[in-house]
Design a protein around this nucleic acid. Structure first.
Length: 585
DNA sequence: GCCGTTTTCGGCCCGACTGTTTTCAGTCG
């Protein structure tokens, strides 16, 4: 039996197939493989599991996966390979995908480099470029050789995609400075940042200005900018000091909506929308929606969509995964709004591994307009965090009672809920007695060890915890940490079904490097009617600011306000929690 | 290779820029 392929691995193989056909000038196949790769990468469940459960027929339910690619995945999971993949590898450079990630190198140029200079790896390429061998090739010159070397250096520095929360403050600062620049009217970040994708590769800003040149000059002088890589009449690409690239598009204010729509993407969403325009005898580009030479709409995104017969589609939904169909049928979800989470149900304090006292966390939450927090310190088997036992939990409860009384006296409308982040042990038992849990207002359970259990064991372990009548929610259900730890192996469909039948909520942990559940899981949870909670997992007062990153994930997963339990006010939440969990609606 | 209020064949988004061209291919978003 070959080892199991993850969705990311399958997606990479499909991308390689796309590159292979692209290199050889095959028409349409590259786009088809690319599309399948994107769809598989964004999937909420394991493709190999889908195959096991429903065969290739189940795989063909995925948009962009047809009989051929479904067969390839089947062959991959049974034999670890497939014929076309083998054959492609034999006629491509070893590190084709990495070579193509170098700016200005695409499949065709990589093929030339491979055919003429036997370049297999980035190292090979760097050596060849340094010795001037690249510039003698057809289609290459001195300049492209320099660009390649620069691109390799940039790639080494830029590293992986950045976490949204690390980048959003920077984009807000750039917007602010641009809007203060001479002649600039508006500056808005588009691209994956605007769609609130969990990670970001580069930045796109749409700017409206009367004098593009002046705006670009101002931008070039910003502290954040290291150097200008390219500059046209109304567009500019810069390398920022943090190693990311940033694209600026400057348009007249009257086409702002069309430009924003175009640069917000996603690419796949735009493909569908433009196809729709084409079918109606119209043309959509970054300057507007056109019938021949007549411009029908351009000023706002709303107008552009409306002129196409569509309602406004929120940026978070623009992924070409059914939002257009839903829009046409007037069935777009009424998405949960930013700022609508009323309280944070996972907060750690200095009773365990948090930085601050319960009171400080409460006051920080009040300052941010929250109405309640649940104090959810770790429990006893999490030794490294100094987890609480039943006795300490009782002691903490007394302190919380005292603080609540104090807050009432002050006239503050704020409630501290007694809670815990209970440790789920290897066998699915909890490390705190039911009697102690019964005294708490809100119990989250989480896995912090034995990450490598088999899928069956890990799934059973979590379901056992969910069957406990006191466990209100499962915290960070998949355990992944972006760039650091893969999710543990669980059967998400089974978990969702168990969550539904036991009445256990699943958490969207908004702590940016967790972002767990992720968007695709949320969408499945909503489909199954599973309740969600959005928490920050705050270990410091500043972390409470992360709530809206959780809302972003919920929105990307099509969640409505009523899907998220802690959009209730404190009183409503408490009466909801008072109902036995299997009867909660 | 995929897909279908043009559904089993014939289509498949659009524009700009760059460098190496002498009219355009390749790359990118």
């Amino acid at each position: 039996m070959p080892r199991k392929f993850t969705n990311a691995e399958i997606a990479d193989i499909m991308r390689l197939m796309a590159v292979c056909y692209e290199m050889e000038g095959v028409a349409f196949k590259p786009a088809a493989y690319e599309r399948a790769a994107d769809a598989i990468a964004a999937l909420g469940e394991d493709a190999t599991l889908m195959l096991k459960q429903g065969g290739t027929k189940e795989l063909m339910e995925i948009d962009g996966v047809g009989p051929a690619i479904a067969d390839h995945i089947k062959s991959l999971s049974e034999k670890g390979d497939f014929k076309e993949y083998r054959s492609c590898r034999s006629r491509m450079p070893e590190d084709a995908l990495e070579l193509i990630s170098i700016p200005d190198l695409g499949p065709k140029k990589v093929k030339t480099l491979y055919d003429r200079l036997k370049i297999e790896t980035v190292k090979d390429l760097e050596r060849a470029a340094r010795t001037g061998k690249v510039s003698s090739l057809p289609g290459f010159g001195k300049k492209s050789e320099e660009k390649i070397l620069k691109g390799i250096a940039m790639l080494k520095q830029a590293g992986e995609r950045r976490i949204l929360a690390d980048i959003l403050p920077l984009t807000r600062e750039l917007e602010r400075k641009l809007e203060a620049a001479p002649g600039v009217k508006r500056a808005v970040t588009a691209g994956s940042v605007r769609r609130r994708q969990e990670t970001v590769g580069d930045l796109d800003l749409v700017v409206t200005a009367s004098q593009p040149k002046k705006a670009m000059d101002a931008f070039a002088g910003f502290d954040e900018v290291r150097e200008i890589l390219e500059r046209g009449d109304r567009n500019l690409t810069a390398l920022l000091k943090n190693g990311m690239t940033c694209d600026l598009l400057i348009v007249p204010d009257e086409v702002f909506g069309a430009a924003l729509q175009h640069f917000t993407g996603s690419k796949d969403h735009n493909v569908v929308v433009r196809k729709m325009a084409g079918d109606k005898g119209l043309k959509l580009n970054e300057y507007g929606l056109w019938r021949g030479a007549r411009r029908l709409a351009a000023g706002t995104e709303e107008n552009v969509y409306r002129a196409l017969g569509l309602p406004y589609i929120e940026p978070e939904l623009r992924t070409a995964s059914g939002e257009i169909e839903a829009a046409l049928a007037d069935r777009l979800p009424d998405l949960i709004n930013y700022g609508s989470v009323r309280g944070d149900l996972q907060v750690q304090t200095d009773w365990t591994d948090g930085s601050s006292s319960i009171e400080d966390m409460a006051r920080a939450a009040m300052k941010r307009g929250l109405e309640y927090i649940a104090v959810t310190d770790h429990t006893k088997t999490l030794f490294m965090a100094g987890g609480l036992d039943e006795k300490k939990l009782a002691k903490q409860a007394k302190e919380i009672d005292g603080l609540n009384a104090k807050l009432v006296q002050e006239g503050a409308k704020f409630t501290l809920l007694k809670g815990a982040e209970v440790n789920i042990m290897k066998d699915g038992k909890l490390d705190i007695s039911d009697a102690a849990l019964a005294k708490l207002d809100f119990v989250g359970a989480a896995i912090h060890s034995s990450f490598r259990l088999s899928r069956v064991q890990q799934t059973e372990r979590m379901i056992r915890a969910m069957k406990n009548p006191h466990v209100d929610a499962i915290f960070h259900p998949t355990g992944r940490i972006i760039h650091r730890r893969d999710p543990y192996d669980i059967d998400i469909e089974k978990i969702l079904k168990a969550a539904k039948t036991t009445g256990t909520a699943l958490e969207i942990d908004a702590y940016p490097s967790r972002s767990d559940l992720r968007d695709a899981h949320v969408r499945l949870a909503v489909k199954h009617g599973v309740k969600l909670v959005i928490d920050t997992d705050a270990h410091h007062p500043d972390h409470l600011d992360y709530l809206d990153y959780g809302v972003a994930i919920a929105r990307r997963g099509w969640a409505k306000k009523r899907d998220v339990v802690n959009t209730k006010d404190a009183a409503a939440l408490q009466s909801w929690l008072a109902v036995p969990k299997k009867d909660r609606r």
